[in-house]
Computed example of a mutant assay.
Amino acid sequence: MKLGILSDIHGNRVALTAVLADMPPVDGLVCAGDVVGYNPWHADCVDAMRGHTDALPADASWPTEEVPTVMGNHDRAVAAETPFAFNGMAQAGVEHATEQLSDEQIKWLAALPDERRVCDERVKLVHGHPDDPDHYTYPEEFGPDLLGDEDVLVMGHTHHQHHEVYGDGIVMNPGSVGQPRDRDHRAAYAVLDLADLTVEEHRVAYDTSAVIDAVEDADLPRQIGFRLTQGR
């Protein structure tokens, strides 16, 4: 079985469309959180994860059911469950998402769990860290001690693409679809093969200028768009 692994879409429909169009055939998708925030297409990205096919590219060749997703800190802030210390750009994105999303879409975000297991519990999804959903677990903190009884631990939050293979399993972060911060501006995702426990990391270029224009049209801070050209 092959899984497409997404994380940190952050309202970037242009990047999400590029990732899904680039993705090789998979048996399912999962998302490690932060569907919304920063970029202006929060509703489209939420609907894509909800399995609403009209939010996805017409020529897609991947599953179109609801995508198993965990709650990121931006998702939680929009759902108004708990506060988070945001900078100006992040706070503007949260406010924009709150204004744009319908009650039904916000209800979907509010129902997302902090942790979920898929594929007969072989894959565990969290956003930040198994013990703290808001902790930024960078690659230098990866280690087999993060694994429980799952074969694969998937984390997001840092926007840094990386994976490590240990004797007990895999610890991975697919990177950010909508706002990479590892100095590679291309949208990031990964494909996990559960048959042989391997990970393929992928990057795909997309039209960042279209996002910059949309950010400005939405009266969001200009830096939200321009940082996408630098991957930071």
Rank of each mutant, 00 (worst) to 15 (best):
residue 39 N to K: 11
residue 25 P to D: 14
residue 54 D to C: 10
residue 26 V to W: 07
residue 56 L to E: 01
residue 68 P to N: 07
residue 68 P to E: 02
residue 61 S to D: 15
residue 81 E to D: 11
residue 32 A to F: 05
residue 85 A to S: 13
residue 40 P to N: 11
residue 30 V to A: 14
residue 34 D to S: 06
residue 28 G to W: 11
residue 78 V to W: 06
residue 83 P to K: 05
residue 49 M to Q: 09
residue 77 A to H: 04
residue 26 V to Y: 04
residue 33 G to F: 07
residue 31 C to N: 12
residue 67 V to T: 11
residue 37 G to N: 02
residue 60 A to F: 08
residue 27 D to E: 14
residue 56 L to K: 04
residue 44 D to S: 07
residue 41 W to Q: 13
residue 57 P to D: 07
residue 73 N to D: 11
residue 66 E to M: 15
residue 77 A to D: 05
residue 75 D to L: 08
residue 85 A to M: 07
residue 55 A to I: 05
residue 70 V to S: 01
residue 59 D to C: 07
residue 72 G to Y: 02
residue 54 D to K: 12
residue 48 A to Q: 00
residue 45 C to K: 03
residue 25 P to M: 12
residue 43 A to P: 00
residue 37 G to D: 02
residue 50 R to I: 01
residue 61 S to H: 15
residue 77 A to K: 04
residue 47 D to N: 15
residue 68 P to Q: 04
residue 85 A to G: 06
residue 58 A to S: 14
residue 79 A to Y: 05
residue 25 P to K: 15
residue 33 G to S: 06
residue 77 A to L: 07
residue 85 A to H: 12
residue 37 G to L: 05
residue 37 G to H: 01
residue 38 Y to D: 02
residue 45 C to Y: 00
residue 31 C to V: 05
residue 56 L to C: 04
residue 80 A to K: 14
residue 35 V to F: 08
residue 78 V to R: 03
residue 28 G to F: 14
residue 29 L to A: 09
residue 50 R to N: 02
residue 26 V to F: 05
residue 39 N to C: 14
residue 25 P to C: 14
residue 60 A to W: 09
residue 49 M to H: 09
residue 66 E to D: 08
residue 40 P to I: 06
residue 47 D to T: 02
residue 65 E to K: 13
residue 41 W to L: 08
residue 40 P to S: 09
residue 27 D to Q: 13
residue 77 A to S: 14
residue 65 E to G: 11
residue 56 L to V: 05
residue 50 R to G: 00
residue 55 A to G: 06
residue 48 A to F: 04
residue 65 E to Y: 01
residue 74 H to V: 03
residue 24 P to F: 13
residue 33 G to C: 08
residue 44 D to M: 08
residue 24 P to S: 15
residue 64 T to Y: 07
residue 49 M to T: 10
residue 52 H to W: 10
residue 30 V to D: 04
residue 54 D to V: 09
residue 59 D to H: 14
residue 77 A to F: 02
residue 35 V to W: 03
residue 24 P to M: 06
residue 71 M to P: 00
residue 70 V to L: 06
residue 63 P to Y: 10
residue 39 N to S: 10
residue 76 R to Y: 00
